[in-house]
Simulated scan of single mutants.
Amino acid sequence: MRTYPPAAVVVNLLLGLPAVVPVWLLWYFAVNWPLAGLGWTQGEPTENDGMLPWFIFAVPVLSVFSGLWWLANHLLRRRRHAGPRAAGAYWTTSALLTLVPTGALIAVL
C-alpha cells in the first residue's frame, strides 16, 4: 500500500493558508443567499447591495485559487503514477488537507 506523498502534504497545507479567503467567500455567500428560506442563518440586514458585487469579486478569486490548487495537485499526482483507485483517495485527502488551516482558524476563534 502506498502512502500519501510528503510533498503533497506540504503543498496542500501551504495552499490552505490562502484558501481561508475563498472558503470565507463561499460561507458568506451561503449565509446571505438572497432567496428567502435558503440561507443557513439570518442574513446581514445592512447587506442590501445584492449579490452581483460578490459574484464580481468572488468568481475570479475562487477561479484563480481552484485553478492553482488543481494544477499543483495534478502535477504532484502525475509524478506519483498511482492507479485509478488511489485517485479518489488522493483528491479527497488533498481537499481535506487544504481545509486544515481554515478549521484551525475556526477552532481558535
Rank of each mutant, 00 (worst) to 15 (best):
Y4R: 07
T102E: 06
L109R: 09
W27F: 13
A107V: 11
N48I: 11
A107H: 10
A19S: 02
Y28L: 08
P60S: 05
W27L: 15
R77P: 01
L105Q: 06
V100A: 05
D49W: 13
G39A: 15
T46A: 14
L13G: 02
V23K: 00
F55W: 15
L38Q: 13
A95P: 07
G16A: 01
P5D: 12
A86Y: 05
T102R: 02
R2P: 14
T102N: 06
A95E: 06
A104H: 07
G37R: 09
S94G: 14
G50C: 11
S63G: 13
V23Q: 07
M51S: 13
L97K: 03
A87V: 02
W91P: 01
A7M: 09
W69Y: 04
T98S: 00
R78Q: 13
G43K: 14
P60M: 04
Y90D: 06
P34G: 09
A95Y: 08
R80L: 15
V61T: 07
H74W: 05
L71C: 07
N48M: 10
N48H: 10
A19W: 00
L17I: 07
E47Q: 14
V11I: 15
R2A: 09
L26C: 06
T98F: 01
Y28C: 03
L17C: 02
A30V: 14
G16Y: 00
G39C: 13
V23C: 05
P34D: 10
V21L: 08
G83W: 05
I106N: 08
G16K: 00
V61M: 07
T102H: 07
L97G: 03
L52D: 11
L38T: 12
G88L: 08
V21Y: 04
V100Q: 02
S63E: 05
E47C: 08
P5C: 14
T93N: 10
A104E: 10
L62Q: 03
L105E: 05
S66C: 07
L14D: 06
T41P: 00
L15Q: 01
L13Q: 03
G88Q: 04
R85M: 09
N73E: 08
G16Q: 01
V31H: 12
L25F: 03
H81E: 14
W70A: 07
G103P: 04
G67P: 02
L109K: 06
L17Q: 02
T92V: 15
V21H: 03
L26R: 02
V64Q: 04
S63L: 13
G88F: 05
P101I: 01
Y28P: 01
L96V: 15
A87W: 02
L62G: 03
P60A: 04
W69F: 04
L109G: 14
A82R: 10
P5W: 02
S66E: 09
L71M: 12
S94E: 05
